[in-house]
Amino acid sequence: MSALATSATAPKRRGRGGSLAWMAVPALVFFTGFGLVPLLGVLVLSFTAWDGLGDIRFAGVDSWTTVLADPGLPHALWVTFLVMALSWAVQTPASILLGTFLANHHRYRAILSVVYFIPLLLSSAAIAIAYKALLDPNFGLGAGLQIPLLVQDWLGDPYLAFGVVIFVVSWQFIPFHSLIYQGGVRQIPRSMYEAAELDGAGRVRRFFSITLPQLKYTIITSSTLMVVGSLTFFDLIFVLTAGGPGDATRVLALDMYVRGWQASQMGLASVIAVILVLVGLVLALVLRRLGGRDTSHSQLEGA
């Protein structure tokens, strides 16, 4: 009886397409209020002058001309690009190798995975503070062990400081990305390897002919996270080097903070923020084009 009654109402319910839309409203309200509105707001603010406390007044394109004429901008863009490119170039091969290894060696995998994940639990502030103490030329690890090679002014020399930033970034994130690759490698059908083995392909050949091509979408996912994530290395660099020495490690995000909150020029900072958004969107689009599809489809193709 009741089953009959509900089945009669079911088609009607199916017809009312938007009946569940209210469920998405709270998330949409929050995301609009603190995500989309600020995204448009930062564009508006880039045409104003504001010291962060007093009144906001319209200033036309003043901030834009100031920032675009400032040699600090190409420098910050260059540093941001270098951090992005180098940290990608260090992390990706290392993560693929570690991920492949972890996927195949079940015995160690459990132990290694536990330890590998620890750096991701620490806050960037904690990691930066610990490395600052560890690399101290007078009281750090190198000085304590009396190994001259390790006693360097790590954060005082522009090139060394840059290298330290790349190293610490890799230290923090390689574990995470190797886990992503581990998941990707485990989805590769074993039959492919068996067929290759029958054909006499060696380990290196199997890696380059099967593992790497099959990991294409995993590489794109991981690279997107790395590249977009590299735009957000604010806290690590802020605490570790504060952009120094000089402006050697002053990435865009840091440049924005310094102009906005330390120099009280929110208009200029907003221009930097708009540039940051544009860089992020362009990168995301390029990576998506490389992938040739969006991330909501299955990983297994032709398997």
Binding site: G35, P38, L39, G41, G260, L276, V277, G280
Partner: peptide, 8 residues
């Protein structure tokens, strides 16, 4: 990126 929207 979160930083980009922090001023608004």
């Amino acid at each position: 990126p979160l930083q980009a929207t922090i001023i608004p």
